[in-house]
Design a protein around this nucleic acid. Structure first.
Lengths: 220, 220
DNA sequence: ATTATCTATAGATCTATAGATAATGC
DNA sequence: ATTATCTATAGATCTATAGATAATGC
């Protein structure tokens, strides 16, 4: 129990700055110096004072960013109010995009880096969150498509939907020199778009398998 | 003009191995030692002998991987044979996925890393290829959706389609401990899936705007 | 004689720590 | 007296290079 309280403030500053920088540049591309600069002139040794090492800071920055996103945009309660699987899908898409787009896309940024180059640091925590979302989507897609559509098609649908939730549009746009031409997207606009696009895709798939002989259960 | 020819072979080995490693771990996370190990025991000093520095190797590895992919799966000729914008979309999706999935996903791996953390090394080359593809998709989507759908909806559609082309499914699956349960996707199966999913999404969007008053041109 | 490969190492960069100093709250 | 911050630096890691040695083809 520390008797001084100003340490806690510094610790949180570091945590927030670390999340931003790790999301932007990944684990190895972010130096301790980058993080303290992002804080605005904090001594670099304080990182190891508060977090003992960089890997621990990475882990805690992830936990912090993710729990903030979940707290701000809870999913469970919303899902329980849904009556149809389609409604559930819309809810998952909305919540995911909200979590990813706010808090400076920290959550999404870190996920994206983990996908391109796993650090090995997050594995447990990360699997619990990312693959839970994947499994949830899988069960919703299963309900929507029914049992006439083969499992592989459902798996592929999950990846298609996931990809739309994961793509870091801001980063891509910032790479384009002509970015300023078109204005930034409104989040609610994008949410509605992805919802409709996903529903449309699933409907199309379902139609394909409904057209075929209704008696032949296995198509594979 | 070198009088010995065995150097060329070593140079190519390095280029291929570098592309694989850069695609797997990104620019900064890949060490020269990683690359020569991937070659199978080549002296690390040879990287600088043939490529002068790591950034040059990165650039040339990208050019090599990308040009191989384009050579194997040309797009231009195929597009000219298409009669409808829908056909064009199917062709772009097929070609993109073929390019990304073969040659060990090297092209896609490098793109994915560049998106999460731009190196600044590829900018020119990269912009020429990536944003060309984006603009091509934009023009096709424009044709498919017609002029009743607002531009922003079209931009969003391009990102949705792009995201499905970019998502590195193999990497994601390799992170999941339970991956072995379901078999790996057949590429042609995935191509057909993404094609239908994209078409379905676009159709749904188009329907939405056709339902509205046909006289009110501007919906925004 | 020319090109390719290897050895050894300088120099840059970064993390983590030891030890000193400053600030806080009893 | 305890906690927070700063200084200085050891040690690890990595890129790039100088210079030596080996292999090739005239």
């Amino acid at each position: 129990m520390p008797r001084r309280k100003d340490g806690e403030e510094t610790r949180n500053k570091i945590l927030k700055a670390a999340a931003v920088m790790f999301a932007r540049n990944g684990f190895k591309n972010t130096t301790n110096a980058d993080i303290v600069n992002q804080c605005g002139g904090i001594n670099a040794a304080l990182i190891n004072y508060y977090f003992s090492d960089k890997a621990t800071l990475y882990q805690q920055a992830w936990e912090y960013a993710y729990s903030e996103a979940v707290r701000e945009f809870p999913l469970r309660e919303k899902l329980q109010k849904c009556h149809s699987p389609e409604e559930k899908l819309l809810t998952v898409i909305e919540t995911s995009l909200c979590r990813n787009a706010t808090s400076d896309s920290v959550v999404n940024g870190m996920i994206h880096h983990e996908i391109s180059a796993m650090t090995g640091i997050l594995t447990d925590l990360y699997a619990r969150t990312f693959f839970d979302m994947q499994r949830l989507l899988r069960s919703i897609v299963d309900e929507i498509l029914g049992n006439r559509v083969p499992a592989i098609e459902k798996d592929l649908s999950v990846y298609s939907i996931l990809s739309m939730l994961l793509i870091p549009i801001r980063k891509i746009r910032s790479m384009d020199h002509r970015k300023s031409e078109s204005p930034d997207f409104d989040l609610s606009q994008r949410i509605r778009h992805v919802q409709q696009f996903a529903l449309g895709g699933l409907e199309k798939l379902k139609q394909q398998y409904e057209k075929t002989d209704p008696c032949s259960g296995i198509l594979k």
